[in-house]
């Protein structure tokens, strides 16, 4: 090679929008800050420890597995951080630390790196980690809900140790109570039992608006998902309000907001075209409501997104834009 300065030559285009994977992931991390703050407010130190554990172990496993597989180091793209935070958000506040580490291992190593790393994973890693924990340690994942009473002990929900959806499933709370306005307001703000990151719909929506503003996500998946749930729940409620909770209850309970805004919109595992995104969102919404209404589990967000992740390649095949200048379907 000669010493003189050579010009750079590449194929066009020679300029770039400046978007980067790191930038996108950083925006997602920023969007999760309100939820994180809400989690600390409602669940205190436990939320902090749990999140820190998941993030650190996810990043560590990412580094380690890339190292062992002799691939380039990817912890700088922040995707492992997101997986860690999302996994923590999906855990109950008293979840044992060692189990969280196991969940991180499954999320990063099994669900992501064994498939080839970011971009090649068919399922959302955090979701895979959560489902693994959910099915393996069912009791720890759903049995012992510590009331959010760190802040407020007056609320009636706090004295029971079940999530609103759990109460709905087991009919321990009256439908009328669950659907009343003050309860829904509590659920909107986050004053309910649940996983640390799913309780505050308000904080999640704030994060979602940030992501929309930064154009990291488009409205298609969240709107299709939440909209489908709302329509489904409204129909059920209109058929029989005595056995079905109100649509607002369904919107703000469980992991719907977290799932619709942060989990279903994961770029790698959701369809690429706008029309496909709508199909994906609608599918998630339908499955969620079917599991909530008729399934054995009180909550169906994780399963529905997981199942729809599996259909993503199929949706991508079917939902293609019509190529300019081509009549009919491309």
């Amino acid at each position: 090679m000669s010493e003189e300065q050579l010009y750079s030559v590449s194929s066009s285009p020679h300029v770039h929008s400046g978007a980067s994977i790191h930038g996108i992931m950083r925006d997602v991390v920023i969007a999760m800050v309100p939820t994180f703050i809400a989690a600390i407010i409602f669940f205190g130190l436990n939320a902090l420890i749990l999140t820190a554990t998941c993030v650190i172990s996810c990043v560590f496993f990412e580094y380690l597995s890339r190292r062992i597989m002799k691939r380039n180091n990817t912890i700088n793209d922040l995707s492992a951080v997101i997986t860690g935070v999302l996994l923590a958000f999906n855990l109950p506040p008293t979840f044992p630390i060692w189990m969280a580490v196991v969940g991180s291992f499954v999320a990063i190593v099994i669900a992501k790196q064994l498939f080839g790393g970011l971009g090649y994973n068919p399922f959302n890693p955090a979701l895979a980690g959560r489902l693994f924990l959910f099915l393996s340690f069912a009791f720890a994942m759903s049995g012992d809900w510590t009331p959010w009473s760190y802040i407020n002990t007056e609320n009636i929900v706090a004295t029971t140790s079940a999530t609103p959806l759990g109460m709905l499933q087991e009919s321990t709370g009256s439908i009328a109570f669950l659907s009343n306005n003050s309860n829904i307001m509590n659920m909107f703000l986050g004053k309910v039992n649940g996983c640390i990151g799913e309780v505050s719909a308000l904080a999640l929506i704030l994060g979602g608006l940030y992501l929309l503003w930064r154009k990291v996500i488009t409205w298609h998946i969240p709107v299709a998902y939440i909209g489908t749930v709302a329509v489904f729940a409204t129909i059920l409620y209109m058929i029989d309000p005595s056995t079905n909770a109100s649509p607002l209850f369904h919107l703000f309970s469980g992991g719907l907001m977290l799932g619709a805004i942060f989990m279903a919109t994961d770029m790698v595992t959701s369809p690429t075209d706008r029309s496909g995104m709508l199909v994906f969102g609608i599918g998630c919404g339908l499955l969620t409501m079917i599991i909530r209404k008729w399934g054995a589990y009180p909550e169906g967000v994780s399963f529905s997104i997981f199942i729809m992740n599996a259909t993503t390649p199929l949706i991508n095949r079917v939902c293609k834009p019509r190529v300019f200048g081509v009549k009919g379907k491309a």
Binding site: A19, I21, I24, G116, G117, L118, G119, Y120, T218, M267, V268, T269, S270, P271, T272, D273, R274, M277
Partner: peptide
């Protein structure tokens, strides 16, 4: 780098 399927 691999495609992250963002759809942009």
């Amino acid at each position: 780098s691999p495609c992250i399927s963002c759809g942009r």
